[in-house]
């Protein structure tokens, strides 16, 4: 019932004879799918009244994520949009692909979610130093008093570790409930469980992205009175403004 995707070999890499397990193989499938969709959507980008359906969909997605980031953080959302948006779209695609029969979702394996959480853990110093400078970032660990230093470091590690286990546990519980229902009542009952799995998958992708955003934007400069653009500015607009 509990399938360990890390231990199931999908295929052997030709010429090198390196075993590729199902976690990596399905991650590659999701990557190819996402790249294909974004290539299709951004082939004929244009401005004006008549744009393609693909472009409209992409704009809705990107502007939605942009608005959420804008509400939650100070400063320019474009700093976080590439990282947080990529996390959201990748996890969302992985979670929704659990509906496809025989597809082994990469987020149902602890190694994928641990890798994603590790990226967030590395993102905290990266964005902290980028936003506030090295001195201010290091000072965060000494607050409210230097005696709290070990606890601050511990809380950083455990909060990102909890993100990994949360995503893994939620997706895994959906998979296990689905297989238990298939064993007991295989006719109708798995269907509402799968619908619930869709809902949980969306919520978990949203939660993961928002928590990542909260952690990486926790260190910022105090006086943030920079005018935040409400619309996404393309690089050309910025040049014109300058």
């Amino acid at each position: 019932m509990l399938e360990l995707y890390d231990e199931q070999i999908a295929f052997y890499l030709p010429y090198f004879n390196i075993p590729i397990n199902w976690t990596i193989a399905s991650t590659w499938i999701v990557m190819v799918f996402l790249m294909l969709v974004s290539w299709l959507a951004t082939r004929h980008l244009k401005t004006g009244d008549k744009v393609s359906h693909w472009q409209t969909g992409m704009e809705v997605l990107v502007k939605g994520i942009y608005g959420q980031i804008n509400e939650m953080t100070k400063g320019n959302p474009m700093t976080y949009l590439p990282f947080v948006g990529t996390l959201f779209i990748f996890i969302l695609t992985c979670n929704l692909f659990t509906l496809i029969p025989e597809f082994k979702s990469p987020t149902a394996s602890l190694s994928t979610t641990a890798a994603l959480a590790l990226m967030v853990l590395l993102g905290i110093p990266f964005f902290g130093i980028k936003n506030a400078g090295l001195k201010k970032y290091l000072k965060k660990y000494l607050e409210p008093s230097p005696a709290m230093l070990p606890f601050n470091i511990l809380s950083e590690l455990t909060s990102t570790g909890a993100m990994a286990v949360r995503l893994f546990g939620n997706v895994l519980s959906g998979v296990i409930i689905g297989s238990i229902c298939l064993m007991l009542v295989p006719f109708i009952l798995p269907l509402p469980m799968q619908v619930l799995g869709l809902f949980t998958g969306m919520i978990q992708a949203y939660i993961f992205a928002m928590l990542a955003l909260m952690y990486i934007s926790s260190v910022h400069e105090e006086d943030e009175n920079v005018a935040v653009p409400t619309e996404i500015q393309s690089p050309d607009d910025e040049k014109e403004n300058v």
Binding site: Q68, A162, R166, G169, N170, S173, I203, I207, L211
Partner: peptide, 20 residues
């Protein structure tokens, strides 16, 4: 609702730990 969902996820972590 955004804050509620995030706190729900954090609360749920303890349940998920038990499940794992």
């Amino acid at each position: 609702s955004r804050t509620m969902f995030i706190s729900l996820a954090i609360i749920e972590t303890s349940g998920i730990y038990c499940f794992v």
